[in-house]
Amino acid sequence: MIQVFQIAPNIVEIQWPKEISVNILMRKAYLKKQLIQQFHEKLLRAISGYHMLGLYFSEPMPSEKISQISKEILAKFSEGKKIGSTLWRIPVCYDGKDLNNLAKQKNISKAKLIKLHASQRYHIHFYGFLPGFIYLGGLNEKLATARKSTPDREIPAGSVAIGGNQTGIYPSNSPGGWHVIGRTPIRMFDTSQSPPVWGIEGDMVEFFQISEEEFSDYLSKKPEKVEHA
């Protein structure tokens, strides 16, 4: 199921088949957690993509060794393992600057678009792009939209946006090519906290609609956490 590629003497990459799936996500998140426990400070970075796990060690590490250890760990993975047992509820004020255009493009009402976005549960596949940016998989396919060919110069922190078949939240002001449909008062990346983020790979996220007036009620708060079965 996995292949292990040696990038450099101290960097190896674990590769699953090329697909975006919750199945791979759960195995990857489980393996990552176990490897961090096993290697401690020798494993300086474990960086995930959809079907890859890049491991950056403080010393040379042969791919054969990682392959063997990983296979042993994954053999103990069972579907019932409670990876991603946490659900985070994120308030969103759906007044993004691209909401009208996107609804028109999809030939649906704004209310329908919001409902489709907020009625779904998403998985955190990994952190990437910007510090604290979560790639959320599970977008309703009706909402999937190619990224803008010319990115916006600045998308404000807290923007909830759609890019391809993913949705995500901008943790800081940044140029970006995703379609902004709303904003959340929840902070995605706070360097005064340790860790600076609240969710981990494999967790679930859902959005609920709030009004402009309610926005300030949630400012600087952590999202509501639901431990689901």
Binding site: K18, E19, G49, Y50, M52, L53, G54, Y56, G128
Partner: peptide, 10 residues
Amino acid sequence: EILTSPIFPG
């Protein structure tokens, strides 16, 4: 085309 994957300086 690849799916979003880990990258490192260098």
